[in-house]
Amino acid sequence: MRKFPLGLASCVAVLAIWQIVSGMKWVNPALLPPPSRVGPAVWDILTTGSIIDPLKQTLSLLAAGYCIGCVLAIGLGLAMGINRHVYNMFEPIVELLRPLPKPALVPPLFLFLGIGIATKITIVALAAFFPVLINTVQGVRSVDPVLLNTARTFRRSMPATMIYVILPAALPMIVTGMRVSLGLSLTLVILAEMLVGSTGIGFLILDMQRSFAVTDMLAWVFILGVIGVVLNGAFETLERMSLHWRSK
């Protein structure tokens, strides 16, 4: 229990240094406002309700793209993991597309799908797709053959084996892949909002930088950081639960 205060101390220390550096004007406070000004800005954003619209925009884009990407990836991943023919059919195309840095796909998607919501959802789904796919395939392939043989001995149908044996056994790997892609998806939502459109947290941050509203910009970066920590924390809990449950 002594662990927590120490970690908190280092966070407080960073804030204190930031406050001093900016307060003593060692760094231009116009460029780096002290936490004593960013804090109230965060509070204002939260209490005036101006957080609602951008947050809703960003999170709904993230949720939509992420869910589409994960569902497609898990579906294809299961098929590729179970059936060697399916695996062979899709492996070359997956291996050709996977190393492509996903942000590079933002400009062509703009040309195709316009600057609307479809582009952003697609790019997020693409970012989420590959880590989940690879992990699902590996997860399915590393299922203990004894489990599969047992299911076969008991004459379980393929769908039943899939739902009750393969999916649970591969779940920890799948969840790990989903956590990795969550970070990537968040990155791409923000990037897409920055590059195009006029809504969402990403747009706000870039817009505020251009109009030199530094305090508000930092407040939004802070909020975004909190969102990242919360989403990541939620997933790590989920991951631990899925691992724990398998070890039983």
Partner: peptide
């Protein structure tokens, strides 16, 4: 600090 998206 880690989960902060890079573009931000």
């Amino acid at each position: 600090l880690r989960p902060l998206p890079i573009p931000a």
